[in-house]
């Protein structure tokens, strides 16, 4: 058993290495002076400097962040409302409505993305940032509803009754008791929504017109033309932002069902 435990732990470390080594290699090569990734390694932030004058990438970056922020606001608001309805009321069709949250998560994004392309064309929503935002919110909503719902499921309803017996009006109860207790779940859901949007490639790829893109779409185009350390640099920035958002999320919303 002792040997088995050691082997399992060693395996886990290997898995972590597998997950992180390519990312680290990519990040390191972004600081290498050679445009051909030639070794020996020579530290030079030249590619980061190059980014500052790459207007296409900067525009795409602004679009990505902007869409992610608007997406977060919309998805968190609408998702929290739906989660509240699911938690507070039992009604006909609730189970079906909850099941309907799975298709956006489970169907390959390729299919969803192309389907949006077809439908938006028919109802005359032009390809562009608005269409991309529509798609991102749709993909974020199920996550927000699930995350906020999980928080609501463990919400101690007796504290609201306690507040009422102590003389708090319904509004005082909501503001001073309900809202502060729900905040971690809502913030967690919001961070999820940000991450979903900021990292989304497939949907954006099909809905972005030539010239107006998001960061991942711009990078995809660049990769297909050929690799440059500039791509490493911008990719590293994206990874750092995503992981930063995720670490924040972890602070507000515990994964894994512990505690």
């Amino acid at each position: 058993m002792k040997l088995g435990s050691t082997l399992l732990t060693a395996h886990l470390w290997l898995v972590l290495a597998f997950l992180y080594v390519p990312i680290v290699v990519m990040a390191v090569l972004g600081f290498n002076a050679s445009p051909l990734y030639a070794l020996p390694f020579e530290f030079d932030p030249v590619w980061y400097r190059a980014l500052t004058s790459n207007t296409k990438l900067i525009d795409a970056g602004i679009h990505s962040v902007g869409i992610a922020i608007v997406n977060t606001i919309i998805a968190t608001t609408l998702g929290t409302m739906a989660a509240l309805a699911f938690a507070r009321y039992s009604f006909r069709g609730k189970t079906i409505m909850q099941l309907l949250l799975f298709p956006p998560i489970a169907i390959p994004w390729l299919v969803i993305g192309t389907a949006m392309l077809v439908f938006f064309f028919w109802i005359d929503i032009k390809r562009g940032l608005f269409a991309i935002l529509l798609g991102h919110v749709a993909l974020s909503l199920p996550y927000v509803i699930v995350v906020v719902g999980a928080r609501l499921a463990t919400f101690p309803h007796a504290v609201e009754e306690a507040a009422a017996t102590l003389g708090a009006t319904p509004w005082q109860t909501f503001r001073r008791v309900t809202a502060p207790l729900l905040a971690p779940g809502v913030i967690g859901g919001g961070l999820f929504a940000f991450a979903v949007s900021f990292d989304q490639f497939v949907i954006s790829y099909f809905l972005a017109p030539a010239g107006v893109t998001t960061l991942p779409v711009e990078i995809y185009g660049a990769i297909r033309k050929g690799f440059t350390p500039e791509i490493n640099a911008i990719s590293t920035i994206i990874i750092v932002v995503s992981m930063g958002v995720l670490l924040l999320t972890a602070r507000f919303y515990r994964f894994g069902g512990e505690r």
Partner: peptide, 20 residues
């Protein structure tokens, strides 16, 4: 946390990292 961290970070970028 280390395991789920890449879970949400950009799939495109991670795929690109393998080319390196």
């Amino acid at each position: 946390l280390m395991v789920v961290l890449p879970f949400w970070s950009n799939a495109l970028v991670r795929t690109f990292s393998w080319t390196m």
